Simulated assay, not measured.
Amino acid sequence: MLPDCLSAEGERRCRQLLTRATARLRARPAAAAVLVPLCVVRGVPALLYTLRSSRLSGRHKGDVSFPGGKCDPTDQDVVDTALRETHEELGLAVPEDHVWGILRPLYDQTMSTIVPVLASVGPLDLQSLKPNPEEVEEVFALPLAHLLQEQNQGYTHFCRGGRFGYTMPVFLHGPHRVWGLTAIITEFTLQLLAPGAYQPRLDFPGFQPRD
């Protein structure tokens, strides 16, 4: 059963759990930061995702992701990066006091550190967003209740040299499949918001998130 994670009590609990990590990681150098936008769409708690433009260069074009990008030398910290990139990509201005904290950082296959920043953006009309067509092809939301349903959860086994390497989560049956690092960040978020309601599907030794 989905708890009322958007209540004042739920927010206080999450902020408290993230306090130490946020203080430790906020100013630590990182390659990139993403915002994990917790929103309410038509009265339903959800997470907001983007579909990266197929016109972008690089291996992640056309992927589902959270808004975010590379840290700029002018950014004050990773929170500043996540908020700036979200505004640039979606035209969504998120006040800093809406940030709940920093989730567990990850590193990708190039060993670059990616920092997820959780924030509540409140009630949201997706039609009011103004995505940058150069970066974002589509914006969509997945209700937390959908993400927590077992039939919408899966996993992918990866092999290296013909042997089992690691397992990563995947979330199914939405407008687009959520996989890769975005699925891992989604998993971290569900574990925080709905403790006990989500069973982790993470098992990838050699590709571990950083503390």
Rank of each mutant, 00 (worst) to 15 (best):
L172Y: 10
D75N: 10
G43D: 10
P123L: 04
F140P: 02
T156F: 10
D203S: 13
T50C: 05
P169G: 11
A93L: 12
P195L: 10
V36Y: 06
G165M: 03
A119D: 11
P105A: 12
P169K: 13
G154K: 06
G58D: 05
H87L: 06
E11F: 01
A32M: 06
V117Q: 06
R84G: 03
I185H: 05
G43F: 13
P73A: 12
A27F: 07
T81P: 03
E88Q: 07
H173W: 08
T74Q: 08
L172R: 13
L118D: 13
V64S: 04
G196R: 08
I102C: 12
V79D: 03
I184H: 12
I184L: 15
G69F: 00
G154T: 06
G10W: 01
S128G: 13
E187I: 09
A119V: 15
F171V: 12
L51N: 01
T156G: 11
L25Y: 14
P175E: 04
L47W: 01
R20F: 00
C71T: 15
Y107F: 14
L38H: 07
G154D: 03
S128R: 11
Q76C: 06
F204R: 07
V115E: 02
D203C: 15
P105M: 09
T86R: 01
A141T: 02
P95Y: 10
A32S: 15
G162Y: 08
Q153A: 13
Q149R: 15
V41M: 00
T50P: 00
A30Y: 09
A32R: 06
T50F: 02
M168H: 09
Q127Y: 05
A8L: 14
C159Q: 10
D203K: 05
L142I: 08
P133M: 04
G62Q: 03
E135T: 15
G174C: 07
V99A: 11
R55I: 10
A32I: 03
H87M: 00
L103K: 03
L124W: 01
L190W: 11
L2D: 10
V136F: 02
T186L: 10
D108A: 11
R177A: 02
S128N: 12
H176Q: 05
T189Q: 06
D125C: 14
G58H: 06
A8I: 14
E96Y: 00
R55D: 11
K61N: 04
A141L: 02
G91Y: 06
V64E: 00
A183F: 04
E187F: 11
W179M: 14
L181Y: 03
T50Q: 03
R52M: 03
W179Y: 13
G162M: 07
T86V: 10
Y198C: 08
G206V: 04
T156P: 09
E88K: 01
Q109E: 14
E187Y: 08
L202D: 11
E11T: 14
T189A: 14
P37C: 08
E138M: 01
L193C: 04
K130I: 15
Q199T: 15
L18C: 08
V41A: 02
P3Q: 07
A93W: 07
V121Q: 09
R52I: 05
T189P: 00
P73L: 13
G69A: 03
D108P: 07
V99Y: 07
L17T: 03
D125W: 07
Q151W: 12
Y166L: 08
G165S: 13
R104S: 09
V44P: 00
